[in-house]
Amino acid sequence: MTGACAHDRVTLLDNEDGAQQFAVADITRPGQERLIDAPATELRLGSTSKPKTLKKLRQSDVLLAGNLPPKAAAFSITFPPDQSEIPAGQRGILEQIRNELSVRPGAQIEVAGFTDSTGDDAMNDKLSLDRARSVVDQLRGFGFPVEPEDAVGRGEDEAKARLGDGVSSGDYRKVIVIVR
């Protein structure tokens, strides 16, 4: 191995928030996959060598990880059955979102509406999007720009997958706001 790429590498760092999937594979050669799946393990790229375990992470990698943007913040606003107006009791959460936006320069936002699994699919798709749009209207009222595509209606899919069809549940009558 000679040349500029002799020491190219991929290094797996510590796990992030108990993520289930935790591995990187060199899939350059079909059928000859090389995998690392433990913290502080490393593969040299452009070679067929085995993974190596590091005694400790490189300082430069720790520094680089420190430059990663903070994890997205998530907020949940709940709604009464069949309604898309934000209840008065949930307005404090809007203030929390406003605060989060103020400490994240250049924030990107995603507003996803959900429903429980009562009612039909098409109605729930619409209701979930209406809920998302109610929240978007409020955020725009704070002076924060939100693009139309940042509002997503996820309908009843999640509720149906967890609880089955036709189940009323306050846990799924919600809008999740993600601030990145």
Binding site: L13, E16, A19, F22, A23, V24, A25, D26
Partner: peptide
């Protein structure tokens, strides 16, 4: 090389 990412934090 081509790497397949299955999660989560790496360099």
């Amino acid at each position: 090389s081509m790497l397949g990412v299955r999660g989560t934090k790496f360099v």
